[in-house]
């Protein structure tokens, strides 16, 4: 079982990497017409009209329907819509394959260890990326127009899983007894779920910044990637919704962790480094939601806050587990 799990991890990484390449092919070969065709999801509206913002504008955010295909993307030199269509389908299929392999990998590990398969850092990252991939697939089904983001989601998956497999790999082992608690399972499950969704939220937020720069006429490297991305305000709204969905889950995860800490260590909060960084990330994400609800704060600044929030999550995962030691004997990396 343990060996099967390891093979499936390799398969998952390969599938995601191939998906990345095919997403990139779709990206390169698609032309404006193609992107527009994928992106159009508005029904003709004879009844209801979308008006411009009223008067002074004010904090009336988000007027109008979601229109991801507002800006024509310049056609690449080798634009070939048929190649792009096939590449797009192949990319989705490969992502699905990677997802299945990853699911199998995690389940095999659970069976091999006879416990929930998120008991150390290696498994935690596996589970987070699985949730991220799941969130991505669900989004893709509900809104095919966001497919150009797939390249970057797959990139994030490959990077995280690669680090996981190479640097954090831990053989199957039973759970450290102090971790064997009912609240802890809920706590870690919630943390995994929130982190996975926030990962996709981060990709959307980062690409919002790229696209915003592109729409403002910047042509330097990261902004040039914006050419074939969906329109910035649609992306921005997507990023917000992902974060707004994950934030309560993250809050719940922290509360469960505090309940467990009370039973295990006698205090619900002790500013252990892990707790401190969970708090820092929570405050930054609260700041993001807050900034977005504050009319005088620009959307770009709010989006930057979300990106910084993911930075705090990553520090909590990698730096705190591997460099700073605390009570959380979770990492289990030798």
């Amino acid at each position: 079982m343990a060996a099967l799990s390891d093979h499936l991890l390799v398969l998952a990484i390969l599938a995601y990497a191939l998906a990345m390449l095919t997403y990139a092919a779709e990206y390169a070969f698609s032309n404006r017409g193609m992107v527009a065709r994928v992106a159009v999801r508005e029904r003709p509206r004879e009844l209801v009209a979308a008006g411009a913002p009223v008067g002074t504008g004010g904090p009336l955010d988000e007027p109008g329907p979601v229109d991801l295909a507002k800006r024509p993307a310049p056609a690449g030199p080798a634009a070939d819509p048929r190649v792009a269509t096939w590449a797009g389908r192949a990319a989705t299929a490969l992502t699905l394959l990677g997802w299945l392999a990853q699911l199998g990998c995690l389940m095999a590990r659970g069976f091999a260890a006879h416990r929930v398969p998120w008991g150390n850092m290696y498994e935690f990252v596996l589970a987070v990326t699985l949730v991220g991939a799941t969130a991505w697939l669900v989004l893709l089904i509900r809104r095919p127009s966001i497919r150009p983001l797939g390249l970057f989601v797959a990139l994030a998956l490959v990077i995280l899983l690669g680090i996981d497999g190479v640097k954090l790999y831990t053989p199957v082992a039973p759970l450290v007894p102090a971790l064997n608690s009912y609240w802890l399972k809920i706590h870690v499950t919630a943390a995994v779920t929130a982190s996975g969704i926030l990962m996709v939220g981060f990709v959307a937020a980062a690409l919002t910044l790229v696209r915003t720069g592109y729409e403002a006429g910047k042509t330097r490297f990261p902004y040039s990637l914006g050419a074939r991305l969906p329109a910035a305000d649609g992306l921005e709204r997507l990023a917000f919704r992902l974060h707004a969905f994950a934030f309560p889950i993250w809050t719940f995860a922290i509360i469960c962790g505090a309940i467990w800490a009370e039973a295990a260590w006698g205090r619900y909060w002790g500013w252990d480094p892990k707790e401190t960084w969970a708090f820092v990330a929570w405050v930054i994400y609260a700041g993001y939601l807050h900034a977005r609800a504050t009319p005088s704060v620009k959307r770009t600044i709010a989006t930057w806050i979300a990106v910084i929030g993911w930075g705090a999550m990553m520090i909590n995962l990698f730096v705190v587990n591997l460099v700073v030691s605390g009570l959380h004997s979770y990492a289990g990396v030798g």
């Binding site: 820092v280 807050h290 609800a293």
Partner: peptide, 27 residues
């Protein structure tokens, strides 16, 4: 104002960081 609240939230996050990097007496 909400803007100030935002700045203070940020400062709070920032101020917590040294507590995780330097050893703490209570821990």
């Amino acid at each position: 104002s909400m803007r100030t609240a935002l700045i203070l939230l940020f400062l709070l996050a920032l101020a917590a960081i040294p507590g995780s990097l330097l050893p703490q007496r209570n821990l």
